[in-house]
Write a protein that binds this DNA or RNA. Structure first.
Lengths: 160, 160
DNA sequence: GAGGTAGGTCTCTTTAGGGAACCTTCTCGG
DNA sequence: CCGAGAAGGTTCCCTAAAGAGACCTACCTC
């Protein structure tokens, strides 16, 4: 994300987590994405709803657009006005947000309960996301897998 | 995250994404978690494998332990030696990592292909994660849901 | 007793976030 | 036609963290 999240760039690492972090890992970026998803799509709206500094918001939006997650589109010619919209790449990133919501609801929700609910169009019910295996469709979590080096593996993990 | 990721604390927001970010949103934290998951669990191993500064690593580990994601355990009495292990809370956070891997593989992988693969114990096959609805078990993504205010909603979203 | 390992702490410099003022273009009301 | 206000940023200054690396304290081995 960012052009850097801090100082160290993660984008060059042979790690999909690091490269994903390079796109949305900077502070505020996931929250910006969330707000765009729910229809808060203009600069001033975003700035006010998040309480983020305008400078940082400019940087984050620029980075997200540069990385193809958001699209900046002019919705008025005169006066010139812009809004931000999710690309397909950005919509798929929202999977990440849904998983964050799930974890946050389970482990950090206050007494008040979850702040948002999802109604699934296909079944019409209020549900949340679960991770399933793409091959067998059954639930999949980190305790039920082996992690193996893939074709793009750069280094073998050594224990020292 | 962090004790602050930057300056603004996200933990107080009525948003599960923000509260999740408060736990693992700081730079490096997801990568630390990933490494602990694959068996890199000691301070020096982590520091060398990530190339993170020792100071920041100390801070991040302390934050993750304080938030119940990792557990610091002494594996040798004399000399005193420690290692870090995932708690159940931390294991569930790894769902997030798997989704990051999935997105990174799809959208940012180089020619070399994905650096890691998952073999699912239940089916024995190499697969990846997909998001399914907890109610009907069918695939669920952000384009197939309505987002509704839940019991913990603090503010209504206004468009201005 | 020299050297190495593990697990940190401390100090210093550099970078990036926060806050707020400022700027430009356009519209509206009077 | 003048002033106010909205939208979308840009610029500046200040402070808080990240990065680099030296240093410290056991303890073990040779």
């Amino acid at each position: 994300m960012m052009d850097r999240m801090q100082r160290t760039r993660f984008g060059d690492m042979a790690c999909s987590i690091a490269r994903t972090l390079d796109v949305i890992g900077e502070p505020w970026s996931p929250l910006i994405l969330r707000n765009v998803l729910v229809g808060i799509v203009r600069f001033d709206q975003l700035q006010r709803s998040l309480g983020i500094s305008r400078k940082v918001l400019t940087e984050r939006l620029g980075h997200l657009v540069a990385n193809g997650v958001l699209e900046r589109r002019r919705y008025s010619e005169r006066p010139p006005r812009y809004e931000y919209a999710l690309t397909v790449k950005g919509e798929e990133l929202c999977d990440l947000l849904m998983v964050m919501v799930r974890w946050g609801d389970r482990w950090t929700a206050g007494e008040a309960g979850p702040p948002v609910l999802y109604r699934h169009h296909e079944c019409g019910e209020i549900g949340h996301v679960e991770l399933h295996c793409s091959v067998c469709d059954r639930p999949m979590d980190v305790t039920g897998i082996d992690i193996l080096p893939g074709p793009g593996a750069a280094v073998t993990v050594t224990q020292g």
